[in-house]
């Protein structure tokens, strides 16, 4: 279970387990977390539970609340977040999320009450794209840096930085190859066309080939040099 730990000058003064849907924070005595500091508003901030998330909201300081050093009006709390409240620190600790890997299993939950067929109006009128939930938890994977230099063909002399998951070169009819960026290196694989790619003069058939720095790859009329940098 997630909890909040309030401390000042290195000493813990309060702890709060997140078992309520709403936790209020402020100087007023009625708040769940009372912060006795003149710099803090009577009703300073709130944390509300939605599903597995706890959402911090600024209740009117205007400028926002510093979380991990950055001012924010609203934030989905992440394990280890530190909320600055004058001379106090409020730390958010989520033991479940503290493991590197999110093993959260799919669960069924009742939806929020809304007429799902009616998209809410927005100022821009653009609804569908704005509401698109982006993929990706931020991945922690590190990818190597590579590029190819065309030695021959229509792009002769040009470079292409391999900054996407894949890059293709060649042509579908004469021979198309894909270079794949993976955590442990770059691979070249045959996609389609008459000819299989060659690495340093040797055909690679249909299997992926791990590229080494300065390998020469040929496919169709194109000839490129692979470089790590």
């Amino acid at each position: 279970m997630a909890k909040l730990v309030l401390s000042t000058e290195g000493a813990v003064v309060d702890q709060c387990f997140m078992d309520d849907a709403l936790v209020t924070i402020g100087r007023g005595a009625y708040n769940r977390i009372v912060v006795d500091d003149p710099a803090i508003g009577v009703r300073h901030a709130s944390i509300s539970a939605v599903g597995h998330d706890y959402i911090l909201e600024d209740l009117g300081s205007g400028a926002g609340i510093p979380v991990n050093g950055a001012l924010t009006k609203r934030r989905i709390l992440q394990h280890g977040d530190v909320i600055e409240l004058g001379s106090y620190h409020l730390k958010y600790v989520d033991s479940k999320a503290s493991s590197e890997i999110d093993l959260e299993r799919t669960m069924i939950i009742s939806g929020l009450k809304l007429n799902v067929d009616v998209a809410p109006a927005t100022d821009s009128g653009e609804v569908t794209q704005d509401l698109h939930v982006p993929s990706s938890r931020a991945t922690k994977t590190h990818f190597p840096n590579g590029r190819i230099k065309w030695l021959q063909g229509p792009h002769g002399g040009e470079y292409k930085v391999l900054d996407r998951v894949i890059a293709t070169f060649g042509a579908p009819d004469t021979g198309l190859a894909v270079v794949t960026r993976r955590p442990h290196g770059f691979y070249v694989t045959y996609v389609e066309g008459a000819e299989h790619p060659r690495v340093n003069g040797e055909s690679i058939g249909k299997e992926p080939r791990h590229l080494q720095h300065l390998d020469i790859v040929e496919v169709g009329e194109e000839r490129v040099e692979f470089q790590l940098f």
């Binding site: 989905i76 992440q78 799919t106 809410p120 698109h132 982006p134």
Partner: peptide
Amino acid sequence: DQVELGVISAAEASQSHNRSLVT
């Protein structure tokens, strides 16, 4: 649902822990 209701923005959604909750 949260994004549609404006409870959180689409950009914030990538920070959410609610990915696995289906309705």
